[in-house]
Nucleic acid binder design. Structure first.
Lengths: 127, 127
DNA sequence: TCGTGTATGATAATTGATTATCATGCTGTG
DNA sequence: CACAGCATGATAATCAATTATCATACACGA
């Protein structure tokens, strides 16, 4: 398989070009639906995600209860939009100022996440 | 039991005075540890949470994968802080401006959540 | 007091996500 | 070609959260 991509690479690369973090299941469906790729098993998806995180290529992102999504590490600072209809997560660029002013006395902040909820462009147009 | 509080009321009231949203399990441990209250079963906690949401008294809050927390409805607009050490969630007052500027073209935002991560005052002092 | 209905607790059952297992097939080497 | 080792897929096993079940106990009205 030296001239073809390994399944693991397919997982990593799919996330590299995705427009938002994806769960194991989303990734699985996405890869299976692509006719130019061979089929892939869900076990391989989980294995690749785990390895990707261990290798520092991927970062887990928890936006909801019940599922962990993954994104490429090394992306610019960004946040996420979660569509209430299709439940896909999208990256959104930029950030806001003055987050520190929210911090209560005595607390120490190491990072933050901003989550926007609503309708993504696709679902808004379809609805 | 007319002069005492029902278990359901105890759950609702515990959340009313909590300093952040709590999961079923957190609530259960909290209520059991309070010597002035009778013991309570985990089933009752889940039942009360479900009923509280149906009645509009409680709101589910999803900050992580793996657990749903609940808070009183009708709180002022606020956000949350999640302690990486004790994993408790705290309410934080206030908000920030210009969130709309993050929204991609064609998307529609209905609500948002800001999550701060780090050490809470207790853990910071203890650590 | 008797009967009905609600509240409760213990625990079994379910569910969804994730991990472990195991057999297969392919790669590259000696 | 035979062998060792890794990648893979199907699926069983695990795990945590949640829900369903069922028997008990108490409150309240007839």
């Amino acid at each position: 398989m030296s001239e073809n991509k390994s399944k693991h690479q397919q997982v990593i690369e799919a996330l590299a070009v995705a427009d938002g973090p994806m769960s194991a299941n989303e990734l699985w469906e996405h890869l299976r639906s692509n006719p130019s790729l061979n089929s892939i098993g869900i076990a391989t998806v989980y294995r690749s995600l785990k390895k990707g995180v261990e290798d520092g290529e991927l970062v887990p992102v928890e936006l909801e209860s019940g599922s962990v999504r993954y994104e490429s590490s090394g992306l610019q600072h960004h946040h996420h939009f979660l569509c209430s209809t299709c439940s896909r997560a999208y990256d959104v660029e930029g950030c806001v100022k003055n987050l520190e002013k929210l911090l209560p006395q005595g607390f120490e902040m190491t990072r933050h996440e901003i989550l926007l909820y609503g309708l993504c462009a696709d679902c808004k147009m379809a609805g």
